[in-house]
């Protein structure tokens, strides 16, 4: 139901993003999806990748401020309106989405998101038979 996301603190300075990417490259980590929440002074670089645990350790070794968090991952049909349908089920249950991003994988749309109430979100996913994916699915799909 959830996958590991790396959250990386990146200062708004040239050379900081490449340092992270080079470290991932050196460790032969594949980036599956990523997004940056940017502010005037820094960004939080969120990414879904292969072997997230090992990726996290490798980045720490490279002096990068990095943390693992669990985020929900849902697979939806790659058709207009499917994202709206998925988000509506959470919205109707009174759950707020803190952030969300998406990518395509093998013809499926994957929604990555975090909510303000994970327990409730788990129930909503089960009750509505939404197609969630886990770490193993991701690596298979990749």
């Amino acid at each position: 139901m959830t996958v590991h996301q790396l959250s990386i603190f990146i200062e708004n300075r040239s050379g900081t993003l490449i340092k992270v990417l080079e470290a991932l490259k050196a460790a032969n980590i594949q980036i599956i999806a990523s997004t940056i929440a940017d502010t005037a002074e820094y960004g939080i670089y969120r990414l879904i990748c292969s072997e997230p645990m090992r990726a996290c350790e490798e980045l720490k070794k490279a002096n990068v401020a990095v943390a693992l968090s669990d985020v929900f991952a849902l697979a939806i049909d790659d058709k207009p309106g499917r994202a709206a349908d998925a988000v509506k089920t959470f919205s109707e249950a009174g759950i707020s989405i803190a952030y969300m991003y998406s990518f395509l994988l093998r013809g499926k749309g994957i929604l990555i998101f975090r909510t303000d109430d994970n327990e409730k979100a788990v129930k909503v996913i089960a009750d509505n038979q939404l197609q969630s994916i886990n770490e193993a699915d991701l690596s298979e799909l990749a």
Partner: peptide, 18 residues
């Protein structure tokens, strides 16, 4: 500088950093 061990999963949004 934030210490590596204090940069935990809650820091996945700028709000936590702020």
């Amino acid at each position: 500088e934030i210490r590596q061990e204090y940069f935990t999963g809650v820091f996945d949004t700028p709000a936590a950093v702020d």
